[in-house]
């Protein structure tokens, strides 16, 4: 099996830390790439073979919605989700429109395990 790569974009260091800890425990061999905003996520995604992408929605510089618009076509096979506290229906509808999944915060081991497998 080829190297699995996961991109986490969240402006909260605590969230990135929690996600990294959960995913690394589940899959110690995965490479985890971190970004602090949507723009950084796009830059870091370039040239990578990404399998799982978790995007916070409300982030400085570029939000998760704009990042997802650019990232989704680049990785048609990847599992991509908004992982956000912004649980408004409008954001959930946007996720559907962008053909990505929606995971409501808070981050829990169970939710992440269910999503990344």
């Amino acid at each position: 099996m080829s190297q699995q790569n996961c991109l986490i974009a969240d402006d909260s260091r605590m969230s990135r830390m929690m996600l990294k800890k959960i995913i690394s425990t589940l899959h110690p061999d995965w490479q985890i790439i971190e970004a602090e905003n949507g723009e950084e996520a796009i830059n870091k995604a370039e040239g990578q073979d990404l399998h799982v992408i978790l995007l916070d929605f409300n982030m400085p510089v570029m939000d998760g919605g704009k990042a997802a618009e650019k990232i989704r076509p680049l990785f048609p096979e990847a599992k991509i989700a908004f992982l956000t506290a912004n649980v408004q229906e409008s954001i959930q509808l946007l996720a559907k429109k962008l053909q990505i999944d929606f995971i409501p915060k808070p981050i829990t081991e169970e939710k992440i395990k269910q999503y990344v497998g």
Partner: peptide, 11 residues
């Protein structure tokens, strides 16, 4: 604290 607030206030 920002992240805890983010979740609580957004909820």
């Amino acid at each position: 604290m920002k992240e805890i607030g983010n979740v609580i206030l957004n909820a």
